[in-house]
Design a protein around this nucleic acid. Structure first.
Length: 210
DNA sequence: GAGGAGATCGTCT
DNA sequence: GACGATCTCCTCT
């Protein structure tokens, strides 16, 4: 059974203060929540990727600390947002203790609450009757790193370095009791360096995986 | 349904 | 000045 969003428990800093591989796997099935003036947006996390920091050529932190990636070197449980390909924002969460780089990239969400508002933000034409909302349409809302960021209104100016572990934050991650049956591990997507490492995690059989 | 190319700009060299 | 943890549109099958 799953609890309602209002009674779900907020993930604490200790949750993120671990190896990014364990955090990436544990985040599957949790709810990513955005509080907006018009209401709550929420999606279930169905796909993540781990970025290890020092010994990971594909990680932004591999070349050392810069103004851009400094959040990855900070305390766990903070949002790292970067802009890519001139069009898209990607959302990550910092892992490991303050001073040690590492993070997890959110790659796909299953829309749960505020579906209409998220579709609007994405420019997706959503049928009014829920029974007419095909999977192929719903997948356009948040199936992919750039898509889910746009659906939730995530930008670098607004969300970079924001705490995801504060009850007052408008962006946070909660556990509503949902249990993941099986997790699949595969190589990461869209990268060249260290592309063969199996650091991508997703919920087996979930149709919202990108 | 699959495959290819263009869009577009912040960040680092 | 080059490139990137992507998405969309267009064409072809």
């Amino acid at each position: 059974m799953t609890k309602s969003i209002s009674r779900a428990s907020l993930l604490k800093p200790e949750f993120y203060n671990r190896d990014p591989r364990r955090v990436a796997r544990s985040l599957l099935g949790k709810l990513l929540i955005r509080q907006t003036p018009r209401g709550i947006l929420a999606g279930r996390i169905v796909e993540t990727e781990a970025y290890l920091g020092n010994d990971d050529a594909a990680a932004h932190s591999a070349a050392g600390k810069t103004a851009r990636n400094s959040v990855l070197f900070g305390p766990p449980g903070h949002a790292y947002v970067y802009f890519i390909y001139g069009n898209h924002y990607c959302l990550n969460v910092s892992c490991l203790p303050d001073g040690v780089p590492g993070g997890v990239l959110f790659r796909a969400l299953e829309p749960i609450t505020g579906i209409e508002q998220m579709a609007e933000a994405r420019g997706v034409d959503l049928p009014e009757k829920p029974e007419l909302r095909k999977l192929s349409i719903l997948k356009k809302i948040s199936s992919g790193p750039g898509r889910m960021s746009e659906a939730l209104g995530v930008t670098r100016a607004r969300d970079n370095d924001k705490s995801l572990v504060s009850a007052r934050s408008d962006l946070r991650i909660v556990d509503d009791g949902y249990r993941v049956r099986r997790v699949v591990v595969s190589p990461r997507i869209g990268i060249v360096k260290a592309a063969d490492h199996p650091l991508r995690y997703f919920i087996a059989g979930n149709p919202f995986v990108s």
